[in-house]
Design a protein around this nucleic acid. Structure first.
Lengths: 327, 327
DNA sequence: ACGTTTTGGGAAAACGTTAGCACACTTGTT
DNA sequence: AACAAGTGTGCTAACGTTTTCCCAAAACGT
C-alpha cells in the first residue's frame, strides 16, 4: 500500500504539503503541486480513508435505517439515498431494524462507534428524545416519513393529508357514491394522516359510517382481509381508498375474487407510488415520488454534515395523483 | 469521548492490558479483569472502531454489490446478507452498480480505500480476472448467482438447470402439450442456464420449435411483450416457463389481456421465488430460497475473512418447486 | 528602509487502537 | 538447584492521515 509518505518522498516535499494540496487547505506552490500530482499518479496513490477518518473525525459514511428493506417502499428510498450519497462521495450503510427498539439501539450504538457521519432514519418506534440525543452527540439526523413537530429535527415527508384528499376527490369525481378506507397502523404517522384525510373528506357525506374503514396493516394480506370485511358489511361500496399500494393490491385481489369488475363496479386507489407493474389492472395511486424523497433527504443529511445552514424543520414533499386502470 | 487510556487509568493498568482483555488476546489476571470491567462500565467505554481498524487492519465492514436494489430479488438477498452480517458483528455497505463496469470499478476502488473486509458481489459484467485481482489484494470475495469455473473464486448459486427441468416436468405432468419459454438476457448466467434447461427438456418433443422461446429481459414489461409475441405465433401454447418471476408476472398480465384462463387454458410458472403476493392468481414458481442464498454467501464471506479453511469453489443451493395457482 | 501581509512549507503532535518486545514472577520438571 | 514453560504486565512503535504551530521568504504599503 502506498502512503502519503511515499508520495511526499517522491515529490521531494513534506507530508504536510501533500496533505494540504489534496485537501485544498493552506498554500501550495505551483511547482510543488506539479511534483506532487506526478508522484500521486505514478504511485497510484489513494488516501487511506480509515487513517483520514481517525485524524479528521469524519468517515464519509452515512447510514440508512429502515424497518425492512423487503417492503418495496424502502428499496426505492435506498436506491435514491445511495445514488445521492455515492455522488457526493459518501458510502451508504444499510440497517434493517424491524421497528425493534432493541435493534435500533444496537445499530445506533454500533454506528456511533463507527463514527458514522450521519443517519437517515425511518422508524415508527424511535423517540424524538433519542434523535435529539444523537444530534447532541453531533450526529446529524434526517427523519423520513414522519415529522417531529416541536423538536429541532429535520424531517422529509410526503404531503400525506393532501394526498389522501386528492385520492378521495378523485374517487368522487370518478362517480363513486360510497367510499371505503383501508388503513395502516395508526401509530404510523403516514397511515394516520391518510386515514385522517379520509375522515375529513368523507365524514360529512350522507353515506359515511365508521364501519367503512377497516384495518389493513400496510400489507397485501391485510388489505385483502380488510376488503373482504368491508364488502361483507357494505355490498354497495363502489370506491376504496387504501392507505398504501400494498393494501390496495391486496384489496384488488379480494375484489377480483368477489367477482366485481374494476373499475366499472368498484374503483380503487392506493398511496405511495411504488413500482408495481406486475399487478393488473394497474393500480391508480397517489405517488409520493419516493426517489425524490430519498434524494432530498440524503441531500439534507449531507448538508447538515457539511454544516451548511439548514432550518431544522419538516420539509414536506408534494404528492401527485397518478390515475391508472383501477379508477 | 472516552478512550482506552481513560479506562486504563481508572483501572490502574496499562492500555495494553485493557486491549488484551477486550480482545481476548494474551494473559490478564482476574484482578485486572475485574478492575478493567468496572472501569469500562463506569465510563461506558466503547472501543473506537476507526482506530481499531487503522491499527488492526480490519474494518468489520463488508459490502454488497448488486446491480439494482430495485429488482425485488435483491432486497431479499440484502436482507439476508445484512441479518447475517449484523449477527456476526459486521456492518453492511450497499452498492448499486447498474451493471455498469465504470461504477463497479469506482466502488471497488472506494471499498479498497475503506479497507473493506470483504465483498459479496452479484454482477453480470465483472470479469473473473478482476475478482482474482481483488483476492490477491487479500480482499475476500463471494460471487452470487454466477459460478466462475476454473477460477479460485467462491460462489453461491442456485441449481438453475435442475430448477428449469423441475419447472418443465411440472408443466408436463400438469398436462401441458406445448410449452413456451420466456428467457432473460443470455449473458446472465442464471437466465442462460434456465433457458438451457428448457431446451434440454423440450428439444426432443414433437411440438418443439425455436419460436417458442422469446426474450423477456428479466423484466415485467419484457415478459409481457414476450408473451404477446409467443401467442401471436402459437395460439395453442398451453404452458409457459418464464426465466424469472417478474417475466412470469408480465406474461400473466398478457395472458389475462388475451382473455385466456389460468391455469385451465394455459399454465405458467416462474423462477426465483420472490415475494409477490400482490399478484393473482398467485404464481407458481421454482423457488431458489433467496434468503438462504444470501445468508450462506455472507457466512462464507465472513468465514473467508476469518481465514477459516474453505474450498474456493461453487456452492450450489437446492431449489424447490413451489406450485401455486397458475399451474 | 521598515513594518505588515500574503504565500509557502516543514516538524511533530495528535487521532485511539493493536501488537511486538522485554521483563518479572510462578510453577513444574529433572 | 537449575532450567524451562507458563502467566502477567507495561513500553512503545506502528497504522496513515490531518492539523496545529512555527519559520522563511516574497510582496506590499508607507
Amino acid at each position: 500500500m502506498t502512503t502519503i509518505r511515499d508520495v511526499s518522498k517522491l515529490a521531494g516535499v513534506s507530508v504536510a504539503t501533500v496533505s494540504r494540496l489534496l485537501n485544498q487547505s493552506g498554500y501550495v506552490s505551483k511547482e510543488a503541486e506539479v511534483a506532487i500530482m506526478a508522484a500521486v499518479k505514478k504511485l497510484n496513490y489513494k488516501p487511506n480513508t480509515i487513517a483520514r477518518s481517525l485524524a479528521g473525525k469524519k468517515t464519509s459514511a452515512v447510514a440508512l435505517m429502515v424497518p425492512d428493506i423487503l417492503n418495496p417502499f424502502f428499496p426505492e428510498l435506498a436506491r435514491a439515498a445511495e445514488d445521492e450519497a455515492a455522488a457526493r462521495g459518501y458510502t451508504l450503510v444499510l440497517c434493517n431494524t424491524d421497528n425493534n427498539p432493541d435493534k435500533e439501539k444496537m445499530y445506533i450504538e454500533a454506528l456511533i462507534n463507527k463514527q458514522i457521519d450521519g443517519i437517515m432514519i425511518s422508524s415508527y418506534t424511535i423517540s424524538p428524545g433519542q434523535i435529539v440525543a444523537l444530534q447532541e452527540r453531533s450526529i446529524p439526523i434526517v427523519a423520513i416519513d414522519k415529522p417531529y413537530d416541536g423538536y429541532p429535527i429535520l424531517s422529509v415527508t410526503a404531503a400525506n393529508r393532501e394526498g389522501g384528499k386528492l385520492a378521495i376527490r378523485h374517487l368522487l369525481e370518478s362517480g363513486c357514491q360510497k367510499i371505503a378506507h383501508i388503513c395502516g397502523p395508526s401509530h404510523v404517522h403516514s397511515a394516520y394522516e391518510r386515514a385522517l384525510a379520509y375522515e375529513d373528506s368523507c365524514a360529512g357525506m350522507p353515506w359515511y359510517t365508521p364501519s367503512l374503514t377497516a384495518f389493513g396493516g400496510f400489507s397485501v394480506a391485510g388489505g385483502y382481509k380488510a376488503m373482504k370485511e368491508i364488502y361483507r358489511m357494505h355490498q354497495d361500496v363502489d370506491g376504496v381508498f387504501a392507505g398504501n399500494d400494498l393494501m390496495a393490491a391486496g384489496a384488488l385481489k379480494a375484489i377480483h375474487e368477489l367477482g366485481l369488475s374494476v373499475p366499472d363496479k368498484i374503483k380503487i386507489i392506493g398511496f405511495d407510488g411504488i413500482v408495481m407493474d406486475m399487478v393488473f389492472p394497474e393500480l391508480s395511486t397517489v405517488s409520493q415520488q419516493i426517489y425524490t424523497l430519498g434524494k432530498t433527504a440524503m441531500d439534507y443529511l449531507i448538508r447538515q454534515i457539511h454544516d451548511e445552514p439548514i432550518e431544522r424543520k419538516n420539509y414536506e414533499l408534494e404528492v401527485r395523483l397518478l390515475p391508472k386502470s383501477t379508477t
